[in-house]
Design a binder for these strands. Structure first.
Lengths: 198, 198
DNA sequence: GAATTTAGTCTTGCATACCGGAAAAAGCCA
DNA sequence: TGGCTTTTTCCGGTATGCAAGACTAAATTC
């Protein structure tokens, strides 16, 4: 068995890189009746490279892609994003490491909402080992947290206030002050947390 | 003196490529307490490349940048774009009937956020018996729901899309179209639901 | 404090992004 | 059809993106 060649990114199916970037560039260019030469002039990217990109035979660098976007008078995002396609459902699987926001011995946090997609709300799952705690510095003014306990015994602190929650209890508190979530029980604790920025 | 090399894109000032992409990656990574090794594992991009990118010494290809974005659970655009009271605590006890939003044989809904206090976000716990379903007419334009399955086997429908979720899986979907949450398993199902109105 | 582990940077080597110019296609008008 | 122009693809060379492993420094464990 020949040993596996070094996995290079180029080997990734071209379509996966950025769906139809080539087609998109070609479209924008012909919309404007530009030749490769014209686009090359406007972008500073060589005709040959542009040709390859349009035929999906290249894996352009960020810099080159950015220049092309600028030549069309748009941002990278605008160039890359397929306009108007918002798939209805997005799923985050339990074991998807990409969403393990943070993990250490005492505390594991999973992101349940695509971060930064929803700007002012975040949804987390937090697992705390006995004695474990999640302490946070104040967030922006007006930020509140909503929390519900699925398993274990949890103590919540916000400012000087403190409260203890059992399985099934929920709470909301100010998060624009120092606050903390602590596992006050003997077993593992599991809570869901919604953070709302104002 | 060697003759002037052909002007390559790499020669462009690094900052211009994508403002502080390196810093951004580094930030996201340390936010999550990930080592380069961990990020390499999650993204499929080598440590060394990641190191170079963070130090702004590389001009990554689109493919690599995309993989990094995916490892962080965000889109390319999201990665590239620059981001940026009296008693503190209110508790809702598990058995407090006042917050049983709705109860019937098949479906029990508890409100975990004081309703109409936070106007554009609501937080629910939904319990579905086998065969039970929660069907909703479209909410306001732009409304999305975030859902995570704590127990059971759940099917989600939004528009024509459908997906099945096991324990620990999460999803987000459009709620401004007809949508439904169904218990597709043999036992009781428990999910947490966040609704965001736009 | 030596040995082990864990973090990051540096080095090596290959595949390829990228450029400039040549060859090939495609129009376009007699 | 034959030339003339314009547009696109092909080709050769250079610089560099990228992966893998070596190396170094810091933190842990014994």
């Amino acid at each position: 068995m020949p040993r596996k060649a070094a996995a290079r990114v180029k080997d990734v199916p071209a379509e996966a890189i950025s769906r139809h970037l080539g087609a998109r560039v070609k479209q924008l260019r012909s919309d404007r009746n530009w030749s490769l030469e014209a686009l090359a002039g406007a972008s500073g990217v060589s005709r040959s490279m542009l040709s390859e990109i349009e035929r999906e035979q290249a894996n352009p660098t960020l810099a080159v892609t950015l220049r092309i976007a600028q030549a069309f008078g748009m941002s990278l995002s605008e160039l890359i994003e397929t306009p108007g396609v918002t798939s209805s459902i997005t799923v985050i699987r339990h074991h998807d490491r990409a969403f393990h926001y943070r993990s250490d011995d005492h505390c594991r946090i999973r992101t349940l909402s695509p971060l930064n997609l929803e700007k002012d709300v975040e949804f987390y799952e937090v697992e705390l080992q006995p004695g474990g705690a999640l302490r946070s510095a104040p967030h922006f003014e007006g930020t509140r947290e909503f929390l519900t306990v699925v398993k274990g015994l949890v103590k919540v602190e916000s400012n000087e206030d403190t409260d203890t929650l059992h399985h099934g209890d929920s709470t909301t508190y100010r998060a624009d002050v120092p606050h903390a979530i602590l596992n006050a029980g003997k077993g593992e604790a599991l809570v869901f947390l919604v953070v709302i920025y104002r």
